[in-house]
Simulated scan of single mutants.
Amino acid sequence: MTLRSTLTAAAAATALALLPNAAQASVRYPDPRPVTGQQIIHDPSVIKLKSGQYVAYSTGGIIGARLSKDGKQWDDAGNAFAEPPSWWYEYNDTGDPWAPDISYRAGTYWLYYAVSSWGTNHSAIGVATSDSGLPGTWKDHGKVFSSETTDSWNAIDPGVIKADGKLWMAFGSYWTGIRMVRLDPATGKALPGATVGQLATRPDLPYAVEGPYIVKHGRHYYLFASYDACCAGVNSTYKIRVGRATDVTGPYVDSTGKPMLEGGGDLLLEGHGRYLGTGGQSVFQDQGQDWLAYHYYDAEDNGTPKLGLNRLGWVNDWPVVK
């Protein structure tokens, strides 16, 4: 590096340090991929179907659905279900489902979701199956796992992964953070008497971590989670953090070695510019490329929650948003 380039770099660094936080964040984080059509979404779970279409399921409606032919233009496709299954009303008066997770296994699409009410851990996770993965084709199979007010965890925000021939579900929101339970591959439901492990938490109340999603890359498993507060429009402080482990059940640590059970987790993506409160994330693959799907609150549209999509790269075996 020449003296001139050294001075230029130093000047740029000084200028960056003087920028407002939002401007610094804009330099640090790339904007989401431009999308058109029905952009409004919350807690998106995206997959590319065998048909070649993309589908995104989300919180809102009876598990709201969006369809796309190219991953850029998204169209409203109604809901996963025509009517809420009757058992949902045990957990809220409106039969309102949250935070779906779609996956494909053994020739079948599996859709996990949560039903609960704001501020309580009287909650349950359910599952449905479909041959095509399209809205309107799902058959519900009832409860997978539940929690009561006497439990120290909250059974919402499911994220399912198959690892070493076993099926696992990460879940959790606030209370004592992120938990994990083993599932029966045949039914997709929690094994009777299965131990509930713990993957991540915060050192202080209210343990604001939720929305787990686990992927495998190379020899590691990576736990993505949303930290801090969602659902407050432009006042949302949601951000995505990540840790990794050599075993799907943990322990997960960040790049400094700090355990996620002690509040660790590398900051992957946070609000910047107009894109505030980034979280509710999931990861999907398209032609060998990993993509991060999430929602953000649009500061230039009254804090409306919208779909964020970014390529996910890997540098020194850690994920990087592109």
Rank of each mutant, 00 (worst) to 15 (best):
S117E: 13
Y112W: 12
R105N: 14
S58F: 14
L111E: 06
A77G: 13
G71T: 06
D131H: 10
Y112S: 08
G107Y: 12
N121C: 06
N92C: 09
W88P: 04
L111S: 08
L49M: 06
V115I: 12
A65Q: 09
I125R: 03
K72P: 05
A106M: 11
T120S: 15
I125Q: 06
G133H: 05
G136T: 00
D101C: 14
Y54Q: 00
A99Y: 05
A99I: 02
I102L: 14
P100W: 03
S132Y: 07
T137L: 09
I47N: 01
P85T: 01
N79R: 03
A128Y: 00
K139I: 09
W110F: 12
G133E: 01
P97T: 02
T120K: 10
G61D: 12
G52C: 05
Y89G: 11
G119F: 10
A80W: 08
P97R: 02
D70T: 01
Y91F: 15
Y57N: 08
D96Y: 15
Y113A: 13
K139V: 14
P97D: 04
W88T: 07
I63R: 04
V127Y: 11
S51F: 03
P135Q: 03
W110D: 00
L111M: 14
Y109R: 02
Q53I: 00
Y109D: 06
T94H: 13
D131A: 15
P100K: 04
V127L: 10
D131V: 05
K48P: 04
L49Q: 06
K50W: 05
S132Q: 01
G107Q: 10
Y54N: 01
S123I: 00
G136M: 08
Q53V: 00
K139Q: 15
A77L: 12
P97L: 02
S51W: 06
A65S: 14
Y112V: 06
G126Y: 04
K72F: 13
G78N: 06
S51Q: 09
A80P: 14
W74G: 02
T129D: 05
S117I: 02
G133A: 08
A65D: 13
D96P: 00
G119I: 05
K72D: 10
W110T: 00
Q53A: 13
Y109G: 06
Y112L: 12
P84I: 00
H122F: 14
W98S: 07
A82T: 11
K72H: 15
Y91C: 05
D131N: 14
S130G: 11
G107T: 05
I63L: 15
G60F: 11
G126P: 12
T108F: 09
P97A: 06
Y89S: 13
S132M: 06
S116I: 00
W98I: 07
